[in-house]
Design a protein around this nucleic acid. Structure first.
Lengths: 148, 148
DNA sequence: CTTTACTAGTTCGATATTGCACTATATAGA
DNA sequence: TCTATATAGTGCAATATCGAACTAGTAAAG
């Protein structure tokens, strides 16, 4: 019987799962009580790529089910970090906008996380980081396409 | 005001989060109803690294809280895929063992996932894959050390 | 126009996850 | 030995997650 050693790709999934756990814990330890990583991620997403997006676009960006995104957005709206407006062209939809409080909160949180994260990061060569990012992007795109 | 573009490391976390979602969905779609990725991952872990480990060792390997692991192990034991025995040297602890059914199930599930996954994977150069894995391992170790 | 198929978003219910508190045992120090 | 402290595992309660069904609106086809 041959050695049952799985493909290195499975090792990759393994590492990804673990880093996901660790980074989630790291971020959430630096967010106010009840704020979760998805909240922060969405604020970040809207800051970087621009607000005015629809919930479903955001859900697709993170590859989470749309009802999960509803839940996350409710949390952000309750905290006053986003507001929603009707979609100008599609009555079923709506658009998501950052509030001033949302922008400020995101900037502070980002600064806090960066400050704590930077000193503990290993020295990663820019080349290697680029290679890794590129590979993960390709992998993500493939998995995305395969979603039936 | 400077451009608020985050470090590429944050892009990395982003990709990791998305791949985590996608791969979780991919695996769970190919497992029996109610079986989740953590169940499969633990079977895999025990197969590859050997059984007879304690729950807390397994929890640490995946960086999940120990009560989460309790829950996962209950699921596996209920399905007859693992069994536990008292720890020979530590009365507080116990050891986790694969059953024959567990080994078989894991082999079949792995075959199924591999069969469906292989054709959709992008052509990844071994070099790039190695580089990425190495980088992620370093990152994981750093994050692990930083856990206070 | 009207019918039909599709899509955005929410609600609901089932289940997973995890923090906290607790028990039992182990270990270290006086 | 006795005491204090730390660790393994579980139970419980709070909450996150997500599939399925639903509502409302859109698009496409005749």
């Amino acid at each position: 019987m041959p050695d049952e050693r799985p493909d290195p790709v499975f090792d990759l999934f393994n590492e990804i799962g673990i880093i996901n756990q660790l980074s989630r814990a790291f971020f959430e330890a630096r967010l106010p009580k009840g704020m979760l990583l998805p909240h922060f991620s969405v604020l970040n997403h809207l800051t970087r790529l621009g607000d005015g997006r629809t919930p479903i676009e955001i859900a697709r960006a993170f590859q989470v089910p749309k009802n999960s995104m509803t839940h996350t957005l409710v949390g952000l709206e309750t905290r006053g970090f986003i507001e929603t407006r009707p979609h100008p062209k599609d009555g079923r939809s709506k658009t998501v906008w950052l509030t001033e409080a949302g922008r400020e909160f995101r900037a502070e949180a980002m600064a806090r996380v960066t400050r704590d994260m930077t000193p503990i990061l290993p020295a990663m060569e820019a080349d290697a980081l680029g290679t890794a990012l590129e590979l993960l992007r390709e992998l993500r795109v493939s998995l995305d396409k395969a979603r039936d």
